[in-house]
Design a binder for these strands. Structure first.
Lengths: 277, 277
DNA sequence: CCAAAAGTGTTCTAAATACACCCATGA
DNA sequence: TCATGGGTGTATTTAGAACACTTTTGG
């Protein structure tokens, strides 16, 4: 920043890309838009857009979030800067530097394409076909980051509606981590972390039919968990047992129809940085 | 990224800013350059510069790192993207979006201003006067991030020379965290974390005179620590005991001469995000 | 001999794990 | 009454904290 020459720089386009996640029906889903034009026409991409002249990247990201989800009040949603992607050829048309954000949504209303995107949809995070640009990598980075933050923050409640059961909260962890947790121990851990959750006095929710009604909780004031809630160490060989995604209830059907792109699951290199960033 | 209009964007300048840290004489120090021109003439700022047309931010950061430190081989050094700062008025002259990086150096040779900066210096991280632009905040963010990463990665060795003693490694933790650790427990923890360090067969170093010679270790292959090495929970009231920085040995004197800027320690809000990012 | 720093061992306690078991509801 | 999910209790194991003690050097 010294030796500053007003004319020594090359102009870049600066954009934001949003990896918006939700947990629905026991599946981690990400909001994607279908591209209408080249390059990558017909492929899925992350929502995003240009940073306007008087905006910060954070402001632009929240504006795009509102536009793409169609939600009127987007101010309470968790939005966090991930990192910036700046490879010179990541967009074949021109030099675009993109600041990526991760956002977490509770209930996942179907997106009402209020913004640029004609067709925006929730798609399960696993086994995505190749996405446009370097968005595979952004989604993988975002997933990894969120998984890591569940360990030492109280972020998981951002995936839940204002009032939720501990079973729902546990399912957030199991879905994002792809593991199964012991219910009694999970329960103890959450309840003994001061400020993680607080019980709603009156309520008890029927958990979709069967079973004992569950107590309702709200997010507490705490943002970090001391000591952390570590994910179970993967036992050497490979992926620790994945939870069964419950069969989609009728009417909540997780769209499993055609995806553009070849469908080869080239998501991104999962060997990068364990829990480093 | 849809509804892409080739002319709808405003050109931004994109720069990198580097927070380069080292631990010397038990003090965390950061590399700063003195600004020669307005704005902020005479104040300290982070080294950095423009991203060139065919560079990624990472490439630009490593180039700047080599230039500013004067080191010939900068390829092995730890360099990590922090976040991007994009407030519209962070630079009064024009719209500059800056990708910030944190770098860790072992021994801290005095910078040979090979780059832009005529006067580059190491200054202790604590009690910096106000820096130029939003660099106070960048330094604070970088410090916090590095402190957090010491917990669950093996990053601390990046502050050490190729061969080091466990005492030196412990001092890295104590310096960055500003706490005192129990030596036997620290030792056990490091040695039982597989791949954190490996002992150098032959050697034992005299630790600057007094005391029993210490065994030498090298960084092991591991990058993450399972389970993490958590910093002691700050006991409610305030800063947990800071270690005494040892009196600077003659000839290694930590420059304590005049600093520009008013000297009011307005570093940055330390209450932000405990170990969140 | 003493001070300083490295290195070892032991005890005590907190926390995570792995269960077994009971409760309330819908079908 | 059975399947399902919520909730409680308890034994076992593991990891962390605290601290006493020995060893090897320089002065």
């Amino acid at each position: 920043m010294d030796g500053y020459d007003m004319h020594a720089f090359e102009p870049f386009a600066v954009t934001v890309d949003l990896a918006v996640f939700t947990v629905r029906a026991g599946v981690l889903q990400v909001l994607l838009v279908e591209r209408g034009q080249e390059p990558y026409a017909g492929q899925w991409a992350l929502p995003g857009g240009f940073v306007l002249p008087r905006e910060s990247a954070e402001t632009a990201a929240r504006r795009e979030l509102a536009e793409e989800t169609g939600l009127s009040d987007v101010s309470g949603l968790h939005l966090e800067q991930l990192r910036t992607y700046s490879e010179p050829d990541r967009d074949p048309r021109m030099r675009v530097v993109s600041v990526a954000f991760a956002a977490l949504l509770p209930d996942a209303p179907e997106p009402t394409g209020g913004g640029d995107a004609a067709s925006a949809r929730w798609l399960p995070c696993e086994g995505l076909g190749p996405l446009a640009f370097d968005h595979d990598r952004i989604v993988a980075d975002a997933h990894e980051r969120i998984g890591a933050k569940l360990e030492y923050t109280c972020l998981a409640t951002a995936f839940c509606p204002p009032e939720f059961t501990l079973g729902e909260l546990q399912q957030v962890y199991e879905t994002v981590w792809g593991t199964v947790l012991d219910r009694p121990n999970f329960r103890r851990k959450v309840l003994t972390t001061p400020g993680f959750v607080e019980q709603v006095p009156g309520g008890a929710r029927l958990t979709g039919g069967r079973g004992k009604p569950a107590a309702l909780y709200r997010a507490g004031g705490a943002t970090t968990a001391h000591p952390p809630l570590l994910r179970p160490a993967a036992p050497a060989g490979g992926a620790g047992r994945a939870p069964d995604p419950p069969a989609p209830a009728a009417g909540t059907a997780t769209g499993s129809s055609a995806r553009p792109g070849s469908g080869s699951p080239t998501a991104a290199d999962p060997s990068r940085e364990g829990r480093s960033a």
